[in-house]
């Protein structure tokens, strides 16, 4: 359940940036191939944010599709799952997106 530790990171980074202001919304970017489950993050967020400036905030998760370039034929490959082959048959793929774990923005309550 690594989502618990990851959520602690999220809450700690956002709380530090927000100083003592109340946070209304947090927007994350989570790659579809990152081995982090958005549902688990949502669950952990409610628990971890309790008693912090993030308590009650909405967690918005933007999922990023997996994309790669085939090292053999140069084609762009959509990665719908982590183990995929290019249409040319090659599995030697250079991943260019899908592993993101980023905090994009936060919305603070108006003064």
């Amino acid at each position: 359940m690594h989502e618990m530790g990851i959520t602690r990171n999220i809450v700690s980074i956002v709380a530090e940036a927000a100083k003592s202001q109340k946070v209304r919304r947090v927007k994350l970017e989570i790659g579809k191939l990152s081995a982090v489950m958005p549902e688990a993050l949502m669950f952990c967020f409610d628990v971890v944010s309790k008693g912090t400036v993030l308590e009650g905030a909405t967690l918005e998760i933007v999922e990023v599709a997996g994309k790669a370039i085939c090292r053999d034929c140069g084609a762009n490959v959509e990665l719908h799952q982590i183990v995929t082959a290019c249409t040319c048959g090659s599995r030697d793929l250079k991943r260019i997106s899908g592993e993101e774990l980023n905090i994009k923005e936060m919305e603070l309550e108006a003064a």
Partner: peptide, 18 residues
């Protein structure tokens, strides 16, 4: 600051500390 709150860009990696 407006009725919808203030949106602040963070652009930080969740795993930055590790």
């Amino acid at each position: 600051a407006n009725a919808h709150g203030t949106t602040v860009a963070l652009e930080q990696a969740i795993m930055q500390k590790n």
